[in-house]
Amino acid sequence: MTPRPHSREWYAALARDLGGYRHPWTRVLDGPDPELIYDLLLTTHLTPQTRVLEAGCGHGPDAARFGDQAARWAAYDHVPELLALARQHAPQADFHDWNGKGAVPPALRGPFDLIVSRRGPTGIIRHLPEVAAPQARFLYVGPRLTVPQVQDRLAAVGWTVLGQWQISVQARVPTREDWATRCAWMEEPERLSEWDAQATAAGLPYREERLVVLAGASG
């Protein structure tokens, strides 16, 4: 039986079958990657003195790509199979098994100058006052144009949104199977019928969307 999307078993299957936290469908973008703004903001805030905490690191692509630009790159995830891959891809980083709930593990209490979340987890926001250094920044990218819990949780811990970007890029999937896989990933089963109503010989057009948020402690 296929594991429920976004269950621990499902993430473990991604690690086993795809070699990491990767989208298991084919897509074609008709514009720039919608996460380029996140990449730019991340590199802008990295220095040889920056201490980084990454929430939901998956198989460690960001730690491998950006970690050598920081003084420290610590990260966590709750899927052992993904963490094992992350340790292979970025042996210089510091990885921990945690789901962002409950008490922060001692090794992740920082302080950190930059807290980042590329793959959607927002639980770390509740812990920002505990893990953040003075003048720290929080950088997030999520899979929709609006992610209300980000702003709500930032406000609850007294952090201010310094910048917010909504990116929408024209894209298409070539097959119905790809569209069904994406609908399951996004937990949007109601959109499956769009294939029958709107698909052409080139596939189904849709919008690839991202929300990028940069925040800092108020005051």
Rank of each mutant, 00 (worst) to 15 (best):
M1K: 05
R4E: 15
E9R: 03
Y11I: 08
Y21S: 12
D30F: 04
G31A: 13
L36M: 08
Y38M: 11
D39A: 13
L40M: 07
L42V: 11
T44N: 10
Q49G: 05
Q49F: 01
V52I: 08
V52E: 11
H59Y: 09
G60E: 05
A74W: 03
Y76R: 00
V79E: 12
E81N: 05
L83C: 09
A90C: 10
P91E: 11
Q92Y: 01
A93V: 07
W98S: 10
K101T: 14
K101L: 06
G102E: 15
V104H: 01
L114A: 11
V116K: 00
S117C: 09
R118G: 12
R119N: 14
G120H: 04
H127K: 09
V131Y: 01
V131Q: 01
A133M: 04
R137M: 09
R144T: 11
R144D: 12
D152P: 00
R153F: 00
G158I: 03
G163W: 02
Q164D: 07
Q166H: 13
S168G: 13
S168Y: 02
V169G: 02
A171D: 05
R172I: 03
P174T: 06
P174I: 03
R182H: 11
C183F: 02
E187L: 11
E190W: 10
L192S: 01
E194F: 01
A197K: 10
A199H: 03
A199P: 06
L204M: 08
V212Q: 05
V213I: 13
S218M: 07
